[in-house]
Amino acid sequence: MTDRPSKTTADMQKMGKYFTRFLLGIAIILAVLELFLHRHGVAPIEDSFMFPAIFGFLAFMFIVQVGKWLRLMIMRPEDYYEGGASDD
């Protein structure tokens, strides 16, 4: 017997695909706009080609990666505080 995904799961997968395409479409439009539009920033480096895009992408990746490392240090079981009587 195989576990078939529910209709909601299938719908969400379909939506995920459409949403990814939608994001890629906007990303391409922004890249094209970058060729024609003079975008100016506060710091000189911000004027580089697609700087906010690269910064946003890398910052997001960095945050998630650091979060994963942080889990090793500061993640505890749900009953960490309530299990003991230390905060009573």
Partner: peptide, 15 residues
């Protein structure tokens, strides 16, 4: 456009 670049590409990172 700067703000949209930041947000859209960060969302792509999530994808």
């Amino acid at each position: 456009t700067g703000q949209m670049q930041l947000l859209i590409f960060a969302m792509l990172a999530f994808v």
